[in-house]
Computed example of a mutant assay.
Amino acid sequence: MRVSVIQMNQGSDKAANLDQARRLIESAIAADRPGLVTLPETWTNLGGGRESRRAAAEILPEPGGTGGAAYELLRGLARAHGITVHGGSIIEDGGEKLFNTTLVFGPDGAEIARYRKIHLFDITAPDGTGYKESALYGGGSDLAFFEAGGIRFACTICYDVRFPELYQELRRRGAEAILVPSNFTLQTGKDHWEALLRARAIDTQCWILAAASYGTYEERGAVRSVYGHSLVADPWGHVVAKCSDGIGWATARIDTATTQRVRAGMPLEEHRDAARAWRAKAAS
């Protein structure tokens, strides 16, 4: 199965972001004919402050219902091109709180997965810049999976990648590929982005698909930078496709034979079962 990770330079103009996403997806489809495309984290809005985020937020419909502009764009692209569209994440209007939410649509345009980001980005960067996602967003609590091209995919978002126990649980529940749409900061990305993604590929023996935002954006009068370098890594941890600087996409082929070979040669899940049994015995 061919997959394309889309790299965007979105800002606070939602209409312009939707147009950029549509153009990049359609260009990737025309050039590489993927069976699945994936967008970055909060591709409908980056920057502009609280008011901009709330203005970009959408109330999500019940499955089959009519949604907002981003929801309908994703659904329409999936149906029009007969592919699976993983919508990175958009800002969901949950009432009192917003949510950082992934939506996935199958080739017939039906919604097949929905995931709210579990781990919220409340950190201080090396330069002293503070990020407090929990001030505006609520955290999710449920895992999400979907099937495409005979492959079982699992959903995560950005900061989730720093929590290997989450990824091991996804593997335990049958994941073969894991999506990581992101807005990684330039400071953390240059040191940790590829290392973390390759580590999660290695310790889960899953394909990792990480579509990321690139470039600069304005946040309450300050200019911030995101790292980009969207990539696909195989279950051995090799980066098999990667975006250059700027907007664009990278395409790779998920080969299930590679997954099977890696897992057969190094049966980590069997060894984890032994470790779980040891821990249970030690605790009794």
Rank of each mutant, 00 (worst) to 15 (best):
A16M: 00
N17A: 07
R53T: 00
S52I: 07
R33W: 05
A57V: 09
R54L: 03
L103K: 05
V85P: 05
T124M: 05
E133A: 08
T101D: 00
R75E: 04
A16Y: 03
A16W: 05
D13N: 06
I112D: 01
N100E: 11
S134G: 10
A70C: 07
R50A: 11
N17M: 07
G64L: 14
A16E: 04
E96W: 15
F105R: 07
G88D: 02
P63Q: 11
K97N: 09
A21R: 11
T42I: 15
E111I: 06
N17W: 04
G64K: 15
R79S: 02
G64H: 14
K132A: 15
G130K: 15
E92R: 13
D93H: 12
D32I: 01
V85T: 09
G94P: 00
I29F: 15
A28M: 03
R79V: 00
E26V: 03
G64S: 15
R33C: 08
S27V: 08
V85C: 11
Y131S: 14
P40G: 09
R116Y: 04
P107H: 02
G48F: 01
N17K: 10
I83P: 04
A69N: 06
T129V: 12
G67Y: 04
S134E: 14
E51D: 11
E133I: 12
G49T: 13
Q20V: 10
G128K: 04
P63T: 13
L77R: 10
G94F: 10
G128H: 08
E96I: 12
D93F: 03
I112F: 01
A70M: 06
P63V: 13
K132P: 13
R79W: 10
L120V: 09
L60I: 13
S12N: 04
D122P: 01
G95W: 10
G48N: 02
I29A: 10
G48Y: 01
L73T: 13
T102P: 02
G67R: 03
G106W: 09
E62I: 13
G68D: 02
I118S: 11
A57M: 09
Q20W: 08
A28Y: 08
L98D: 13
G64P: 14
